[in-house]
Each structure stands twice: as C-alpha cells, then as structure tokens.
C-alpha cells in the first residue's frame, strides 16, 4: 500500500528563546493537492514554512517526505529531493539574463553539481532549448536575453516559477506568491500556479484569501502557533473560531 501523503509534519514545535512560534503542528498533505496555510499576522505561518523548507530546524517534531524522514537534512539536500521553495520577495539572479536564470536551475537538475571550472560555458548550450521552452510556458520567451533585474515585478515572479519548474519539483512550497502584486499579475500567476500544480503537490502561505479560495483544495488555519481549523475553504471560512481569529469578536 503506497502512502499517498507527500509531506507530513508531526508534532512540530519551534521555540525562539522560550517563545513558541509553532506549537505542536501536525500536517498531512496528500500528493497532488494544493494546500494553503493561512492565519493572522504572527500565527506562525512563516515559521512553519521555514521549518518545511529546512531553513529552520524544529525544536521538536519530525517532517517526512513520502515516508522518508527529512527533519535533519540541509536546505540544499531537501531541494535535491524535489522539494523546491519560492520566496516572498522575488528571487531571481538579478545580473544574469532571463535565460541564464533558468539555465542555472537546469544545470543543477541535469548535471547535479558543476565543479567543472576547466570547461567553457559553451557546454551549457545544449540546455538552451529546454530553457527557452520553459520560458515560453510562462510567457517569457521574448525576454530570454534581458537581464533579470530589468523585468517588471510580475514577470520576475513568472521567471521564478520557470526556474523552479526547471527542477521538475515534486513538491512546491510557495511563500506568499501574490505578495505585492497588481490584480493583473495575480490573475496571471494564479493561472500559472494552477497549470503547474497538475501532478504536483503545492503548499502555499498566502494572505490573499480570494486566491486561497480559488486555488486550494484544502487549507489549514494557524493562530498562535497552533492549528485552529483545517478543511475545505468553504467549511473553514464558516468556522466561528476562524472568524474570531481574523476579525476579533467584540466583548459583550
């Protein structure tokens, strides 16, 4: 019997000098679904996210990827397993061209490590076709030769997604993918996420609730480091505890 849980967190605790930012969180994210983590400011979403991406090591608890314990792995090694994260602020290689950005990811994915300092970079030319195809898939084919820093914000995020896809990730961890975006960009990136989520597992932290409602299969609401509610958006949104956490309830 194959375990169909892609990513499982059990009893995650993260303490910062006595303050529990994450206090006993359990998550089980089935393969092939889009799962959103939401919650008011300070709920522990970002800490949770950083635990899943291994930027932080939990004080207690364990994280399993397809049944394998990854709690002690380094961020780079987690990425090598196919769990790839995005960043809140756009994460492109600013001085490199759009094509080179994607190529750096392809280089890692196809060749593992590149210690070959004695070879000309012409050996990378065979990756260009694939890189251009990836750029085309996010609508950036015409920008291949541009320097990444020259792109407008929404295009940078698209480039980031193309770069991530180059790794053919099995799990995508998106840290507020819509942060700071115009409505037009939100629409475009939403469509993009939906497209790339096919056959993949996606976990995202997101503030924009209409995006969450639109994209996610299930959501987890965090408040004060604990899970407040979990389920489909429509059900969770009706939960009085969730409404209270978000809006607050006037004292009688």
């Amino acid at each position: 019997m194959v375990d169909d849980i892609a990513l499982r967190a059990s009893g995650l605790i993260m303490e910062f000098k006595g303050f529990r930012a994450v206090d006993g969180v359990d998550l089980a994210i089935p393969r092939g679904t889009i799962h959103a983590l939401i919650g008011p400011n300070g709920a522990g979403k970002s800490t949770c996210f950083n635990l899943l991406t291994k930027v932080l090591t939990p004080t207690a608890g364990a994280i399993h990827f397809e049944g394998r314990d990854i709690t002690g792995l380094s961020p780079a090694n987690v990425a090598r397993l196919g769990i790839v994260r995005s960043f809140q602020i756009s994460a492109v290689f600013g001085t490199m061209t759009v094509l080179e950005n994607v190529r750096i990811a392809l280089q890692r994915h196809r060749h593992g490590d590149s210690w070959d300092f004695w070879r000309s970079d012409r050996v990378l030319a065979h990756l260009h076709e694939e890189a251009l195809a990836l750029l085309a898939s996010v609508g950036l084919a015409d920008y291949a030769g541009h320097v990444a820093n020259d792109l407008p914000y929404g295009r940078k995020r698209a480039l980031e997604i193309a770069t991530t896809l180059a790794l053919e990730p099995r799990v995508l961890l998106l840290d507020e993918p819509m942060a700071g975006m115009t409505q037009e960009d939100v629409t475009r990136i939403s469509a993009l996420i939906r497209k790339v989520a096919v056959g993949r597992t996606v976990v995202m932290v997101e503030h924009n609730l209409s995006v969450v409602a639109d994209l996610s299969d299930r959501i987890t609401v965090l408040a004060r480091g604990k899970i407040l509610a979990e389920g489909e958006y429509a059900d969770v949104a009706r939960d009085p505890r969730v409404i209270e956490a978000y809006i607050g309830v006037a004292h009688a």
């Binding site: 994260r85 290689f93 750096i104 280089q107 590149s114 000309s120 970079d121």
Partner: peptide, 27 residues
Amino acid sequence: RITYSPFGHILRSIRDNEGRAISLGYR
C-alpha cells in the same frame, strides 16, 4: 576559463541570490 565556466556561472548566481541558489539545490 574559470570565470566563464559552468562553475563560474554558479558563483555569480550565489552572489546574486544565495538563498535562491540553495533552494535550487546548490551546496
């Protein structure tokens, strides 16, 4: 040659955005 090798490109990606280079699996 080192500067413009496959290795050299990775160095510049690390300079531009170290966190991102890690997230792509580079140690």
